[in-house]
Amino acid sequence: MTINSVPSSKVRVRIGHLYGDLLNLYADRGNILVLTRRCEWRNIAVEVVSIGVGDRIGSGEFDILFMGGGQDGDQQFLEDDLFRVKADGLRGAVHDGVPVLAVCGSYQLLGHYYDPGTGPRLAGLGIFDMHTVHPGLSVRRCIGDVVVDWIGAPVGGPSSVVGFENHGGRTYIGSGARAFGRVVSGNGNNGEDGTEGVVQANAIGTYLHGSLLPKNPHLADHLIGMALARQTGSAKLEPLDDHLEWQAHQTILDRRASHVAPVGGRVKGSGGSAR
């Protein structure tokens, strides 16, 4: 899948969607659509490239990298490719300051390891200084609306980020990493230490989907801005009319005030992904 728009300026944003044709759970497509449209509305040329199995990530090839979640079976299928074909390119991109957004399943894959609790640890790529432990299927999954205070929010703008989480694994960040945000409501990384997500260089890992970017236009623009800054030295973006987006954002903030316990929904059967 390649979406092209007519280039009207020299800058061009090339978005790499890792396993775009395979990892698409929890509406990851919404995140890509928001990045694309917000570039188009500003007449910034934008291109989305699905990085499939066997494709390498070349140095300087992408301006933004996005990686979503997948079903467990699908995810295991990809791990081999991730380690053999993608690891070096991905590590290099993070090192070079390419903005990266990794959501849910892929967030876990980019840590040091994943401990399923029922067998041996599964190694991660170790790009993020963090690890994930699954406390067992008898322990309640983290499900529900989440509000976080984004630690790295651009000065002068809103710092709340809203989303929906649905994960069994608990993630703990190491001393070499910063949290993406502080949990205001919901569980975040582990429901214990008040952290959500991780930030390393310009890469963000998070459990928030819902989709994440549609209701958080400031975060979408932050990623686009970082991509442009690497080309032009300026992250400045033309403002857009975002009243619908902020209204949807506000709805989640208001629910937090009116709902007694919006998080921790019930799960039926033994259900859910092992992660």
Binding site: L25, F164, G265, V267, G272, S273
Partner: peptide, 17 residues
């Protein structure tokens, strides 16, 4: 199909049940 991931879990898990 994919439906209510928050409630049922993913489709592979349902098929297994």
């Amino acid at each position: 199909f994919r439906d209510q991931l928050d409630r049922y879990g993913e489709v592979n898990a349902i098929a297994q049940q």
